[in-house]
Design a protein around this nucleic acid. Structure first.
Lengths: 225, 225
DNA sequence: TCCCATAAATTAGAAGCTCTAACTTCGTAG
DNA sequence: CTACGAAGTTAGAGCTTCTAATTTATGGGA
């Protein structure tokens, strides 16, 4: 008899996790090749050498696999942002740190365009319905930026200052608009220099970030940009 | 024998166009109900009382129907923007006209969220490949804004000033970022006032639009925001 | 070592989809 | 009135997701 206690974190569960990883690996290559439409459990099974419904032991529905891929993408982007945060701890200028964070965000999106687009899709069917996962995902993405604005750790990101949240959301909106159009090929089609547009826009949106030495706690100036 | 000459704009062709309209109507309701995934030629046929492959006389592939829907959406959004342009001819302030244009854009997107998202999708499979349709669509969407900045008709939108194109693309990027996140439910999930955020952002991005009386030809100041 | 419960994988198959092919129906031009 | 061409029909191939029943493999307890 194998108890649930033993199943968790045993070789069994590790094996299952490994299979799920393989499935997601093939799914990601399908995603990159032909978009989310072309992710097929059947084709993945054939690719992995197993046959058909075997994968339904690991994902009850195809959408569960897609959800897993979306969650992974969120964590991956978040990791890239966290790395940018720790890599810039020496920089004294919070505006420059914010810009570096934005660059990391854009870099990840351009490296994984299909996954980035997937991040803003799954709300399709009932786009006004499920607010909790969206709130969770949003909090995840603005977390690093809030950490940059906050007073260095004493304040949790969950109860950030409303003006900081507002400011970060504005930065994010602008960032997302640029990255989204860039991935879509709009800039390329119009001969717009995406690098330059991104640089000047991010300069503008972070310009008035007060330096910690000038203003207490390094908080942002709430109004304007 | 029916010549191609006669087929065009005869009752035949008009009937075909009417059927295509019915098909698209059902497709749009399916789109609103369950996203583009759930648009099915089979189900549409059943809904229209005809059976199965009959619709393949009107759309060779399912993707052709989707393309048609995307094109319609582009024209529809463009129409909404054009209406905003003509409705504000009396306003002397180009900044306020631009803001009204942005409001029309946002209004359309919020009224047709699924169609708006569809506008930025179809580039998925080979997102670096087909640049012509993207260029065409982009030119279509920034046309009204370029008309607002241009010297009142003597200059065609096709050879607009590079600084005007740059400025409009920046406005569009910001607009799209906000609208896209709003449709995705991000603002709602984070208790951010979308109306206010949109208003202040559009104020900021159009603030430095020179008035025609102050600067010749009402051109925009290229730098800054 | 043997047994047997449990997990994993298999095949069969239902229901749905896109899309092709062949056949029938019907309106209309000549 | 004929006969051509367009529109719609059924049949069916091939793909998909996902369920059900069955077999195979594995590993802990006696």
């Amino acid at each position: 008899m194998i108890t649930a206690e033993q199943r968790r974190s045993s070789t069994h569960e590790r094996f299952r996790e490994q299979v799920r990883g393989d499935v997601k690996g093939v799914a990601l290559s399908q995603l990159a090749a032909g978009g989310p439409q072309s992710i097929s459990l059947n084709a993945i099974a054939k690719e992995l050498g197993v046959s058909g419904p075997a994968l339904y032991r690991y994902y009850a529905k195809r959408d569960d696999l897609l959800d897993d891929i979306v969650i992974d993408a969120y964590h991956d982007l978040r990791d890239a942002m966290d790395q940018a945060v720790v890599a810039t701890t020496d920089l004294p200028d919070p505006a420059e740190r914010m810009r570096e964070l934005a660059r990391a965000y854009r870099r990840w999106a351009l490296e994984h365009p299909h996954r980035y687009e997937l991040l803003f899709k799954p709300l399709f069917p009932g786009y006004d319905a499920h607010g909790e996962p969206i709130a969770e995902a949003s909090a995840m993405l603005i977390g690093p930026a809030l950490g940059l604005l906050g007073d260095g750790g004493t304040r949790s990101r969950l109860d950030a200052r409303p003006e900081d949240v507002d400011h970060v959301v504005r930065v994010w909106s602008r960032l997302h608009g640029i990255v989204s159009l860039e991935i879509g090929g709009t800039y390329a089609a119009m001969d717009v220099d995406a690098d330059e547009l991104f640089a000047t826009e991010m300069e503008s949106v972070t310009a008035r970030l007060a330096r910690p030495s000038t203003v207490q706690q390094g908080r942002a100036v709430p109004s304007g940009d």
